[in-house]
Structure formats: structure tokens, C-alpha cells
Write a protein that binds this DNA or RNA. Structure first.
Length: 804
RNA sequence: GCCCGAGUGGCGGAAUUGGUAUACGCGGCGGAUUCAAAAUCCGCUGGUGGCAACACCUUGAGAGUUCGAGUCUCUCCUCGGGCACCA
């Protein structure tokens, strides 16, 4: 009989699935729903590498599994196609990004199809389609109408290489996340989304989802909630007040100086000579130097503290009217809290360092270990509060300040509002106009989408203006409100916008092939399909896409569009795939492996099996060509077994078969695909030893294999005379009783050392075990001349004779 | 510096959660088949000692708890990942 030929067979089944619509999501169905989603790709010019499909294979395997378990599964795919590579390519070649994107998508789709994923392609979406991004614009308008999108001109992160503003989330260690260029501060007008409004809910609800703990922790840290209070220090002999935020009101008596950030409002006043001080020049010099430093330099690790005292002014501590000096130092950040701090050197590392360097007073107010002492403890040197513990002190001191009208309880967040505008071409135009009479006016629903204008000049201007600003036909328009001449907004949205709601678009496709207004027609479908039950993608989106999408979802919940608080219920991150020998795959090293070559040489099923077998799903793993061939052998051996199926008794195989069903079921459910495959290999090896493979057992085996190797499974299914498709079958159930009929090894130990083992049927009783042990020759030998102290017996496992 | 995660054969990795450590796969060795090779099949494969039966040792290092520890506790080392002047 012929050998298994993947190329021919896989094409055959792919065509069959497509023709029979085997994996199309059922629209009217009484089955329970399961929404299984991949983080959709940016269709880059390079195409897929073997790292991409790792997550896709996992969700696809899981989708098959769920279908066979009787669920109606929604498993869609789409394209996150706005972004800089296509735009940069357009600048270089003059080819419109739309064309590039179209070609890339075509290529990606061919690659995905060759692997035989069971996507419902009828729900495919593309974020750069006008019918798609009119909805992205619609959501923006809703945000604007609720005051959650606003214009601002605070200094923001600016990447001089990408020539656009960036969100905080896109800056990593002071470098642009995309191109690793050093980010600058720049004052440009921008659109900002008030994500901080949702900080508490984003924090609270993260407890309710089934996500990897590290990702949850990263979001918590990024939001960075801290509770404390604002304290007002007056500036002696002036009307000025300096407000500081502290989480430790209990250390207020230890505040021996104040420190202002160089950006502080008061420093500006001093430089403008609005407040008289003795050393303006010195302060001005320091401020100038600090301003020149990049964020990277300012927040550099282990950097020495610097600062200048502002001479001729004193601050007054509201709790005891003590007069303390005021400093300006760049270790205090202008954008966090109040831009100024009370410095408590005895109980804060940074303040301690500062005080040491400039010989400032260090006064202990909390009892405990060496200074700086950062823990809580008993308050000392604290007037009427002396003797209290920190916990109570925090409240009492704050209450006293409130009473004195010198403070209030406050909460601060590290999370900042989301800088949402980009000064680039290839993004969704922000759908508002600027009207002299009416101010900022959003477009009407019927005027969406606001299309991207055609141009031949995609280059970013670098001035903080978008390239759209040069296109007069686009800029000049009419105000939707008063019909007078007005100008369009020319910034575009960031790459993240389209991915904030795409999981909803797949659901909307159920209702209408085109995504059409109004929103109300989709609400029932949202109710039916949300939340996404399983979401799989890389961990790199922890505080970007995953935070942004949660924010938009919560907003859509508030305006009654969706009915769940969270978009993604269970999240899994796939680990990286490294090249041969654990070296990172890269074009320059020439070690990038394309799934195409694997599919060509071994077939899609081998690729799929290997991707799932090479290690724990969330672990970093190294690709090995040799390992791939192991999967090929596995399939060949199954093929051989198929040839010798026949009607024979299943009895001997039953316990192993049912154990394998159990193991595969549980392992798939918990994403342990590697051990699920191992157990299938075990069963296959066992069947191989038989002269005749019981057809019944083999049938079950093929069902278990089907989610991992769908084409091959269909072929085997047909070969043993079954009607396709195997995916119309229900997942096998296991019998706990049959598993127990298995022969097992029990272990005899003497003093904790294994001395012999014996094969018995499980369920043997303890007395019997003990008798067998005491009669065992090897056991006898080891306990000769020793008194038995006790005998430990674990049912069906082990017996340990402990001697004195 | 702080917070997670992980260290198991020559390699990728298992271990029902405290009960035979090294399942499964790769590689290696020996044999069968072959004119020969590939492929395939059968056997062996943690280390040390021993002709052997067998014994001892072994899950990053060291201690502890336990009849019994890869698994629990403490100390330390190494490698990944995240955060990093956030008051």
C-alpha cells in the first residue's frame, strides 16, 4: 500500500472543508457558544514565520476540540493593516499602502490556508477597509461626545525617526517601541483619550478574568494606583501654596525640606521674577540643564541626585508650622502627583540620598531599623501623634490636615491619558472638523466613513502636522453644524485603534455581510457571543492592545453597546520560538524558518503537531529540524497501523485507550498540548505491537488525533471506511471503570529505598499488599535481622517497611 | 534595586501535585533487511564501581521537615521576563 502523501491529501481535504462549509459558524444554533480568537496579525511583507502559527495552531486545535465537544464555535481571522511599514514602503516606492496591504494579505491568507486552519473566512475583516474603520471613527465620536476624547497641548513623547507623537505605552526605556530611536519631549497639539477615568475599573475587573498572572500584574503596575493625600505647604511671606502628594502622611513630622520638579509652576514663576528669591540665576541654570536632559537621562539607573536650594524662601509645614527649605531637583518628576514632594530623608531612599549629598537634616519619625527605614512602625518625634502606629497615624494626620483645611485624601495613578493622534498618513482620519463658530464638531453618523484622501506625498512633515494637512481638498470642508467653512482635523489615529474592537466586528458579520449602521441591529449578537472565551497571542501586548481594548470595551458597556464588563475571558500567551540552537530567528542571521518550507517538505499536519509538541505552550522553545521529522514518523506509523485494523477484541487495549482519552481531554483543556500528543504516541506504539489493531480502538484514536492533525485524521477516517467528516463526530468519552482495570506496578520499599516492584490489577487491598511484600524475597533480604517499626501503605502505589 | 517565572540525561522536555525520577520525541550505540545506502524494523541508552548478580550516587548548591522530597520550608547561586527616581 502506498505511503502517506501529505501534499495531495491536504489539498483534497482543504477543498472538501471549503466546499462543504464544515467549519462555518452556525448562525441559528441551540448549541452552547464558544468564541475562540487569535490576536490578528499585521500583514507584513515578510509573510509568516514559524512563530506566528504557534498560537494559531493552538486556537485551531482548541476550536476543533470544542466543536467535537458539541459547541458552536466562532473562530475567525482578520487583518490589523494600518501601521508604519506599509506607509514607509509607500514613501520609498510611491506605491499606495492600500496596494501593498492587499498583496500582503493575499500572501498571508494563502499561507494560513495551506496550514488548513478552520477559520470561518466568511467573517474576515480588515481594519483598513472603509466599512470597517467608519466604526472605529464612530466609536471615537462617541468617546468625544462623552468628554473622553479631548484636545491638549501638554508636552508629549515624540519620536524623531517615526516623526509622530507616541503614547506612554509605546515608549520603552525612553526609546520608541517601534524603531528604538530616542524619544523627545515636544509640545504639539494632540488628541488624548481619558483612559484615566477608567483606571479604577480597569484595575478592579482584572481580578475577574482568567489571564496569566504576570500579565495581570503588569497591568496593575502600569495603572499604578496609590492612595494617600495632598498636603498644602504655604510659602512664607507670600500668597503661594505648594501642594505635594504623599502616601505616608504618618511621616509628615520628618519632612525636613520640599523638592520641586524643574517643571513646577512655582519654578516658572521664580524664573519670571514673579517671586523674589536670592539665587535666581542658579535656579535658572539648573532648570535649563534639566530641560536639556532627555527622559532617559533623567530617569537613568543609579543616577546621582542633583539639585539647587531656592534661597530666600521657606515653606511652612502645616502640621507644626516648622519652616523648611525649598529645593529644586530633577529626581522629582513634573508629570506625577503634584510635581513636588515633601522630602522625608529618614524614611525614603531617594530623599535620604539627597539629604546625604547636600547635608540636609535627617530626622527619624518612625521607630525601626537602619535609616532610611521604609517600613511602617511606631511614630516618634511627631507631636500629638507620637506613639501611634503608622496605619492609624496615616489616617489621623490626614484628618487633622483636613480639619485645618491644609490637605485632602487623594489617589494617584501612574497611568496617564492616552495620546491618541499620530502625524502620519496611514491611519484612520480623526472624524472632526474645526469650526470658527462652533468649535470642534464631530461628523454625523451618515457622513462616515471619513475616507483617507488620495495623495502622492505620504511623507510625515516632522513639524507636528500630519501629511493630510497639505491636501487642501481634504482640509477645507463645511461645518456639519452651521454649514459655514471649516477645517478638518488632519491627525490620524494610532495603530492600536482598529484592534480595540475588532473582536466585535467578527460578531457583527453574523448579522450582516457589510458592517452597517445603526449599532442597535448588532446588540443581540453581542449578547450571544461575548465575551471572547479564549484569546491567544504574544505577551508583548500586555499594556498596549490588551489595556486599550479593555478600556474601549468598558466604554461600550457604559453606552449600552455590549453587555459584558470584560472583552476577553481566558487569555493565553504563546512563548517565543527560537531558531536552531536557541538563537533568535532574524533575517540578518538567515535562520528564519518559514512555515511554507515545513508544509512543503513534511505537510501541514507535521508542522501543526511539531509546533504543539516542542515544549510547553507558554515557554520559550528552540526549533529543531530533527524534531520535525519525528512527527513525520509518528504519522507514518499511524498509517501503518491503519492498514492492519480489523475486528478483534479491544479488551487488552481498553484501559490504555480510556486513559489516553482522559489524558488528551484534560491536557487540551489546560493547554498542555505536548503531553497530549505524547499520550497519543504511547497509544499508537502500543497498537503497533498488535497483529490486528482493533478497529473500534483505532476509530477512537483518530478522533483524538483529529484536532492536532486534521487532514491526516480525515484521510485515516476515510481509509477505515467511515463517512467524512471526522469533525462531525463527537469527542470520545472515557470510562473511569475501564481505566481502573489496568495492570499497575506497585512498589516495595524498605526504609524508603525501592527494593522490588510487582505488577498487579489495580484495586488490590492493603492486607493483600502487605502479605505480598512480606513474602517477597528481595524485601526479606533487606529487612533481615531488623525489627519492623511500621509499614506505610499507599493504595495501588507503594508499600514502605520502616525498620528501627 | 524591587516584583514575577524557571533551573531535571548528550538535546527538547515528562512526572497523576509528597509516593518507581528521566514518560514521549530527538540524537547515539548494537543487530536485522540491503550488492550498497536511505528508509524501515528489533534491542540498548542518567552516572560511577563490578565479569556478573548487584550496589551506591543523581533533579543548580547547601541545610531542614517527612517512613518517603524534582515537588513543601529556609539560605545561596545562575538564567529568562517585567518594573525601575511614581513620592
Amino acid at each position: 500500500m502506498e505511503k502517506y502523501n501529505p501534499t495531495k491529501v491536504e489539498k483534497k481535504w482543504q477543498k472538501y472543508w471549503e466546499r462543504k462549509k464544515v467549519f462555518k459558524t452556525e448562525e441559528k444554533s441551540t448549541k452552547k457558544k464558544f468564541y475562540c480568537l487569535d490576536m490578528f496579525p499585521y500583514p507584513s511583507g515578510e509573510g509568516l514565520h514559524v512563530g506566528h502559527p504557534r498560537g494559531y495552531v493552538a486556537t485551531d486545535t482548541f476550536s476543533h476540540f470544542k466543536r467535537m465537544r458539541g459547541y458552536n464555535v466562532l473562530h475567525p481571522m482578520g487583518w490589523d493593516a494600518f501601521g508604519l511599514p506599509a506607509e514607509n514602503y509607500a514613501i520609498k516606492t510611491g506605491i499606495h499602502p492600500k496596494i501593498t496591504v492587499e498583496e500582503n494579505i493575499k500572501h498571508f491568507k494563502e499561507q494560513l490556508k495551506s496550514i488548513g486552519f478552520s477559520y470561518d473566512w466568511s467573517r474576515e475583516i480588515n481594519t483598513t477597509d472603509e466599512e470597517y474603520f467608519k466604526w472605529t471613527q464612530w466609536i471615537f465620536i462617541k468617546l468625544f461626545e462623552r468628554g473622553l476624547a479631548y484636545e491638549d497641548t501638554r508636552p508629549i513623547n515624540w519620536c524623531p525617526s517615526c516623526k509622530t507623537g507616541l503614547a506612554n505605552e509605546e515608549v520603552v526605556n525612553g526609546l520608541c517601541d517601534r524603531c528604538d530611536f530616542q524619544v523627545e519631549k515636544k509640545d504639539i497639539r494632540q488628541w488624548v483619550l481619558r483612559i484615566t477615568e477608567y483606571a479604577d475599573r480597569l484595575l478592579e475587573d482584572i481580578g475577574e478574568v482568567d489571564w496569566p498572572e504576570p500579565i495581570k500584574e503588569m497591568q496593575r503596575n502600569w495603572i499604578g494606583r496609590s492612595e494617600g493625600g495632598d498636603v498644602q505647604f504655604s510659602v512664607k511671606d507670600t500668597e503661594e501654596v505648594i501642594e505635594v502628594f504623599t502616601t505616608r502622611p504618618d511621616t509628615l513630622f520628618g519632612a525636613t525640606f520640599l523638592v520641586l520638579a524643574p517643571e513646577h509652576r512655582l519654578v516658572k514663576k521664580i524664573l519670571n521674577r514673579e517671586i523674589k528669591v536670592d539665587n535666581v540665576k542658579e535656579v535658572a541654570d539648573y532648570e535649563k540643564k534639566a530641560r536639556k536632559k532627555s527622559d532617559l537621562e533623567r530617569t537613568d539607573l543609579a543616577k546621582k541626585k542633583t539639585g539647587v536650594e531656592i534661597k530666600g524662601v521657606k515653606a511652612v509645614n502645616p502640621i507644626n508650622n516648622e519652616e523648611i527649605p525649598i529645593w529644586v531637583a530633577d529626581y522629582v518628576l513634573g508629570f506625577y502627583g503634584k510635581g513636588g514632594i515633601m522630602s522625608v530623608p529618614a524614611h525614603d531612599e531617594r530623599d535620604y540620598e539627597m539629604a546625604e549629598k547636600y547635608n540636609l537634616e535627617i530626622r527619624r519619625v518612625i521607630n525601626g531599623g537602619d535609616l532610611p527605614y521604609l517600613e511602617e512602625g511606631e511614630m516618634v518625634n511627631s507631636g500629638e501623634f507620637t506613639g501611634l502606629c503608622s496605619k492609624k497615624g496615616k489616617k489621623d494626620v490626614l484628618n487633622k490636615l483636613i480639619e485645618l483645611k491644609k490637605g485632602e485624601k487623594t489617589v494617584n495613578y501612574k497611568l496617564g491619558d492616552w495620546v491618541f493622534s499620530r502625524q502620519r498618513y496611514w491611519g484612520e482620519p480623526i472624524p472632526v472638523v474645526h469650526c470658527k463658530a462652533c468649535g470642534i464638531v464631530p461628523l454625523k453618523e451618515k457622513d462616515l466613513p471619513l475616507k483617507l484622501p488620495e495623495t502622492e506625498h505620504y511623507e510625515p512633515t516632522g513639524t507636528g502636522e500630519s501629511p493630510l494637512a497639505k491636501i487642501e481638498e481634504f482640509v477645507n470642508t463645511i461645518c456639519p453644524k452651521c454649514n459655514e467653512k471649516a477645517k478638518r482635523e488632519t491627525n490620524t489615529m494610532p495603530q492600536w485603534a482598529g484592534s480595540c474592537w475588532y473582536y466585535l466586528a467578527f460578531i457583527m458579520k453574523e448579522e450582516s455581510e457589510k458592517l452597517e449602521f445603526p449599532i442597535s441591529r448588532y446588540k443581540e449578537s453581542f449578547r450571544k457571543w461575548l465575551p471572547v472565551d479564549l484569546y491567544v497571542g504574544g505577551a508583548e501586548h500586555a499594556v498596549l492592545h490588551l489595556l486599550y481594548a479593555r478600556f474601549w470595551h468598558k466604554f461600550l458597556y457604559d453606552i449600552g453597546v455590549v453587555s459584558t464588563k470584560e472583552p476577553f475571558y481566558r487569555l493565553k500567551n504563546q512563548g517565543l520560538i527560537m531558531g536552531e540552537g536557541g538563537i533568535k530567528m532574524s533575517k540578518s542571521k538567515g535562520n528564519v524558518i518559514s512555515p511554507d518550507e515545513v508544509v512543503e517538505n513534511y505537510g501541514a499536519d507535521v508542522l501543526r503537531l511539531y509546533e504543539m509538541f516542542l515544549g510547553g505552550f507558554e515557554d520559550k522553545v528552540a526549533w529543531s529540524e530533527k524534531g520535525v521529522s519525528g512527527m513525520k514518523r509518528f504519522l507514518d506509523k499511524i498509517n501503518e497501523n491503519a492498514k492492519k485494523t480489523g475486528d478483534s477484541s479491544v479488551k487488552d487495549l481498553d484501559p490504555l485507550l480510556h486513559q489516553t482519552i482522559k489524558k488528551a481531554t484534560e491536557d487540551i483543556e489546560s493547554f498542555k498540548f505536548n503531553t497530549a500528543i505524547s499520550s497519543l504516541m504511547n497509544l499508537n506504539n502500543e497498537m503497533k505491537r498488535l497483529d490486528v489493531v482493533p478497529k473500534e480502538a483505532f476509530t477512537v484514536f483518530i478522533k483524538l488525533l483529529a484536532p492536532f492533525a486534521p487532514h491526516f485524521a480525515e484521510e485515516m477516517w476515510e481509509k477505515i471506511g467511515k463517512e467524512p467528516s471526522v469533525f462531525g463526530e463527537l469527542w470520545p468519552e472515557f470510562s473511569e471503570k475501564l481505566i481502573k482495570e489496568k495492570k499497575i506496578n506497585i512498589v516495595f520499599q524498605v526504609d524508603g529505598k525501592v527494593r522490588d516492584t510487582k505488577t498487579v490489577f489495580s484495586g488490590i487491598d492493603k492486607k493483600e499488599m502487605k502479605k505480598m511484600a512480606l513474602e517477597n524475597e528481595r524485601v526479606k533480604k533487606w529487612k533481615i535481622g531488623k525489627k519492623i517499626k511500621k509499614v506505610v501503605i499507599i493504595k495501588d502505589k507503594l508499600l514502605n517497611i520502616v525498620t528501627e
